[in-house]
Nucleic acid binder design. Structure first.
Lengths: 147, 147
DNA sequence: AATGAAAGTGTTTATCC
DNA sequence: GGATAAACACTTTCATT
């Protein structure tokens, strides 16, 4: 079981990255192989862990989240575990990484309006200090790693 | 053309968020409606802009990117446009936001090893100063906004 | 808006190269 | 590892409620 991917795999991942619901048949035609081959390749890419799955891309603005904020959390002594748990459970936080340096976490927070920011952050005041920046634009929206 | 979504839409988006390739028929059965209804709903969600599309979720580690970094860029005077363009073109940068405050951009950078960090950042030294943190864990991997 | 049924496609399996 | 072809399953259209 080799964990290497070839040019066909790369072309397939690129095509699926553009439309993850494209039919095997259509992908087969586009890439010049048969449908069963496409199906085999996708299965193998999932087996070796390269392809985690197929997901939706939603528009936060269309859902009423007109503002996005990047919040850095600096945990108070002994509060790291509780802070992480609260971040996991906050559904307005749609992404969060634990990082090196004095800031324990960086999170992406969705807001319906600027008025929501303070109340949301106040829920964390017993566990961390925060530093917030508002997202003005997203020149690179989440994209595939180079294959 | 109403831009509101109902409980069925929410259940549908949630199900597609778990497996964006599930067949209309299977979704129909799961949600207790007919396949044509599912298809109509998905089309409408795309039309009103809530559902941008269907994409793949890849594992950077399985692709050899064993390190992830969060880089903050502070643009030098007059270099903002060039900096943004270079960020867009850097395929190791898989996500980037333009934010308020003294840091012009925050970016997510993929690395094959720590040795790659310095050479990659040096390409930006004429346009910005940088501040880098290494990702130690990702407690919240990109998830759907609350519906 | 949603359904059920039929016609049209796509998927899957088995066999072969 | 990939192709072809037949059996099977899904998708789509349309008439109906």
């Amino acid at each position: 079981m080799k964990n290497e991917i070839d040019d066909l795999d790369r072309a397939l991942l690129k095509a699926l990255g553009e439309d993850a619901r494209k039919s095997w048949r259509e992908l087969a035609e586009q890439l010049g192989v048969s449908a069963p081959t496409i199906r085999d390749r996708v299965g193998r890419l999932q087996d070796i862990g390269v392809l985690r799955g197929f997901v939706t891309e939603l528009d936060p603005v269309a859902l009423g989240y007109t503002l996005e904020a990047i919040v850095r959390f600096k945990a108070f002594p002994g509060k790291l575990q509780k802070l992480e748990q609260q971040i996991r459970e906050a559904d307005r936080i749609v992404q969060c990484d634990k990082i090196t340096g004095e800031d324990a976490f960086v999170a992406r927070l969705l807001l319906r309006s600027i008025a929501e920011l303070d109340p949301l952050l106040e829920g964390f005041t017993d566990k961390a200090s925060t530093n917030t920046a508002i997202v003005k634009a997203s020149p690179v929206r989440m994209r595939q790693p180079p294959l």
